Simulated scan of single mutants.
Amino acid sequence: MIRRFGEPPLKGQTYRLRPGAYAILARENRLLVTLQSKPYVEFQLPGGGIDPGENAIAALHREVKEETGWKISNPRHLGTFRRFVFMPEYDMWAEKLCHIFSATPVYALHDPLEEFHSVQWVTPEEAAVILGNDGDRYFVNSMFC
């Protein structure tokens, strides 16, 4: 059974399955996270949706590069959780199936390609408090705190 974080699904609401891959990126006792400023301000683990026909590792590399500009290596799957949320940027209700990985941030290739995203380096303790969802905080806590 896959653990659920956040609000339970709303009765009568239809949710679209949205698998995604997200990374805990540690370097010198700091974690690379993204700060998304729209449609709302939120600190997040870098990552995002897995496109149809794409595997989770390929999606992880692509999404981290788009959101942070960083090249990563050595992804290792830590676990999976689900959340039921409204995604205003897509105007849809989603059952997010979040695959969490640890990986090594190798070097910055360029600035983030995703609009409204910026790179932030925080301590694991800070990340365990500021990340925008319980699932991300749970995996950071399980690794570092």
Results as ranks from 00 to 15, higher is better:
Arg83Asn: 14
Ala108Ser: 10
Glu66Leu: 14
Ala58Glu: 15
Lys65Trp: 06
Leu32Val: 02
Phe84Thr: 03
Trp93Arg: 01
Gly49Cys: 10
Asn29Met: 08
Leu60His: 00
Leu35Arg: 11
Ile24Trp: 06
Lys38Gly: 01
Thr68Cys: 11
Ile24His: 04
Arg30Cys: 04
Val85Cys: 09
Arg30Thr: 07
Lys96His: 13
Asn55Tyr: 10
Gly53Met: 12
Phe81Gly: 01
Arg30Tyr: 04
Thr34Tyr: 02
Glu126Gly: 04
Tyr90Ser: 11
Arg62Ala: 08
Ala56Phe: 04
Asn55Lys: 03
Gln120His: 15
Leu45Ser: 04
Arg83Pro: 05
Trp70Cys: 00
Phe101Gly: 01
Ser102Tyr: 04
Ala26Gly: 08
Trp93His: 12
His110Met: 14
Leu109Gln: 11
Asp111Val: 10
Val106Arg: 08
Pro39Lys: 13
Lys65Thr: 11
His99Asp: 04
Pro112Asn: 09
Leu45Thr: 06
Asn74Cys: 05
Phe84Glu: 05
His117Ile: 01
Trp93Ala: 09
Ala56Met: 01
Gly53Leu: 13
Pro75Phe: 07
Glu67Gly: 04
Glu66Gly: 06
Val64Leu: 08
Gly48Met: 01
Gln120Val: 15
Leu35Gln: 10
Val85Asn: 11
Phe116Ile: 05
His61Arg: 15
Ile24Asp: 04
Lys65Gly: 03
Val64Asp: 08
His77Asp: 07
Pro46Lys: 00
Gln44Asn: 12
Arg30Ser: 07
Arg76Ala: 12
Gly53Pro: 05
Gly79Arg: 00
Glu28Val: 06
Phe84Asn: 03
Val106Met: 09
Lys65Arg: 15
Ile100Thr: 03
Pro52Glu: 10
